[in-house]
């Protein structure tokens, strides 16, 4: 419930600095939620990435951009319609979701039960999440590492060159203090 309130606040707030902080709070609350659901790895990731590093990086971007969001006049009815239809579709689909914690759920029928039963015998690693990530699903994780590497290359390509004097002056000059 608190998540919904924070999410609404993020949308309403025009001050980007406040929005960043609200996003950090949102991530922290989700991390607490994941902890309640016994998903320690996900909670740790959410707390470290969502509340920690992404907030810092967005703040670093904010030092380069203006602090106030540019107000958009009027209402975008098409966007409202798209959001409403998608939301209604998702709510309709969620009625077909199996009951939470039911042992006959499809999640437990596929490879999940193999992992739960055999991980320790196969690998001797107590933390099943680490075993699945690094051993069973190793290639996925390799792809993930390459994605991060590529992201660094992209940022490097965009930002590593010193800006020419005139143009950046024009862009920077109108910045709010």
């Amino acid at each position: 419930m608190f998540l919904v309130v924070v999410a609404l606040a993020v949308i309403r707030v025009r001050d980007l600095f406040a929005a960043t902080m609200l996003f950090a709070i949102y991530s922290l609350v989700s991390a607490a939620l994941f902890t309640v659901l016994d998903a320690g790895d996900v909670a740790l990731t959410e707390a470290a990435v969502g509340a920690g590093i992404s907030t810092i990086l967005v703040l670093a971007v904010l030092t380069l951009a203006r602090r106030q969001e540019h107000p958009v006049p009027g209402h975008n009815l098409l966007a409202l319609a798209v959001v409403l239809v998608t939301g209604a579709g998702l709510v309709y689909a969620s009625m077909d979701l199996p009951e939470f914690g039911d042992p006959d759920n499809p999640v437990h029928g596929h490879v999940g039960s193999y992992y739960t039963e055999q991980t320790y015998a196969d690998t001797g690693v107590p933390n099943m999440v680490a075993a699945v990530l690094a051993s069973y699903r190793s290639i996925d994780t390799l792809g993930e590492a390459f994605v991060i590497f590529t992201a660094a290359l992209g940022v490097f390509a965009l930002l590593s060159v010193r800006p020419p004097a005139r143009r950046s002056r024009a862009r920077d000059g109108e910045e709010a203090p």
Binding site: G40, D41, A43, N127, V129, A130
Partner: peptide, 12 residues
Amino acid sequence: EYSPGGGFQAGV
């Protein structure tokens, strides 16, 4: 491998 965590979180 023993407690929650891993390379991604540790790096961050």
